[in-house]
């Protein structure tokens, strides 16, 4: 009985996380369209609801009722599991992401994360690495040249950007002496990591953009040259699963940027709840990602590789070297 009762808060937290994550892309698509629109000096969606706020709902209904088409020559099994493979990692990552210090409720201490793993950061990097399998499988299973090209690009991109991304957080881990995200946050009491580790932040931010496959690194789904890249052949609900995964990866990256380099829930004004302050920062990063998207053009394939191997990797190694030297 004891054990069953201790499961209840975990189950409730899981339900909340899954529910929020499933609904989160709706306001995010609205936000993205609004930001795109205002950069291009137009108001964006205006007609469905107040300032187009209900537009994502209308779009969701449209997507869900559309024909779910599978190409004749496609590998049907892989084709149908690929969106799920793409969608699971961003959900899994949120297991380890804390959104605040533990709070007291109903006489017990409740941690504001599903599980504050002591290797949280490693878990997140490893799990989010799986996400690219969704892209690869989708491109391969579609049996279409654009889709395969898109997934080939995403493989190359992942190899060149996972490494600097992993290296760039080592400096943070060295400073905190732990891979537990809550400890990394509490080690930033007083001084945020972005001040101590500006190079690390830069490398993490850029390789994070590449990891999320967003402009200027959105080669796997380059609309201009590949149709829609790996999800060219997808439609209806499967396509919407890919969209969901894409937006969630952006949210994950915003969370990681804030937790690792911008002090997580620390440093807010006193009247704001810590969690709210964290979410504010996360929202800011999501906005920055969207702002970048509508400012920069896409890098060429070779430029992408050059940046990854010749710029970010040496920079991240240098960052480790310098922080190691300073700490010793």
């Amino acid at each position: 009985m004891e054990n069953v009762l201790s499961l209840v808060p975990v189950l409730i937290k899981m339900a909340i996380v899954v529910g929020v994550l499933l609904l989160l892309p709706l306001p995010l698509t609205w936000l993205e369209r609004k930001i795109a629109a205002h950069i291009q000096q137009r108001p964006g969606p205006m007609r469905v609801g107040w300032h187009g706020l209900l537009q994502p709902l209308a779009d969701a209904i449209k997507l869900l009722t559309k024909e779910d088409h599978i190409p004749a020559e496609a590998d049907r099994m892989l084709f149908s599991i690929a969106p799920v493979v793409a969608l699971v990692p961003p959900f899994l990552v949120f297991v380890a992401i804390p959104i605040g210090d533990p709070i007291q409720m109903f006489g017990t201490e409740i941690a504001l994360s599903i599980s504050d793993l002591n290797v949280g950061l490693l878990f997140i990097l490893a799990v989010s690495g799986i996400g690219v399998f969704g892209t690869i499988l989708a491109g391969w299973a579609s049996n279409s040249k654009y889709a395969v090209l898109g997934s080939l690009r995403s493989i190359a991109q992942m190899i060149s950007y996972e490494i600097p991304m992993g290296f760039s957080v080592i400096g943070v881990v060295m400073l905190a002496g732990s891979m537990q995200l809550s400890q990394i946050v509490s080690s930033q009491q007083g001084l945020w990591n972005v001040v101590v580790q500006p190079i690390g932040f830069f490398v993490f931010f850029v390789s994070g953009l590449a990891e999320a496959q967003r402009i200027p690194f959105d080669l796997p789904e380059a609309e201009g040259d590949l149709g829609a890249g790996y999800h060219t052949e997808y439609s209806g609900i499967r396509f919407s699963l890919f969209m969901l995964a894409e937006y969630l990866v952006v949210v994950v990256l915003a969370f990681l940027n804030v937790l690792l380099f911008f002090g997580g829930w620390l440093g807010g004004p006193a009247f704001l709840p810590a969690t709210f302050w964290l979410l504010l920062k996360v929202g800011f990063f999501i906005w920055v990602f969207m702002w970048l998207r509508f400012t920069f053009p896409r890098y060429r394939y070779d430029q992408l590789m050059t940046i990854g191997w010749k710029l970010l990797l040496p920079l991240s190694l240098l960052n480790i070297l310098v922080s190691g030297y300073v700490m010793l």
Partner: peptide, 8 residues
């Protein structure tokens, strides 16, 4: 441009 007025 983001904070400027829309022209539509």
């Amino acid at each position: 441009y983001m904070v400027s007025k829309t022209v539509t």
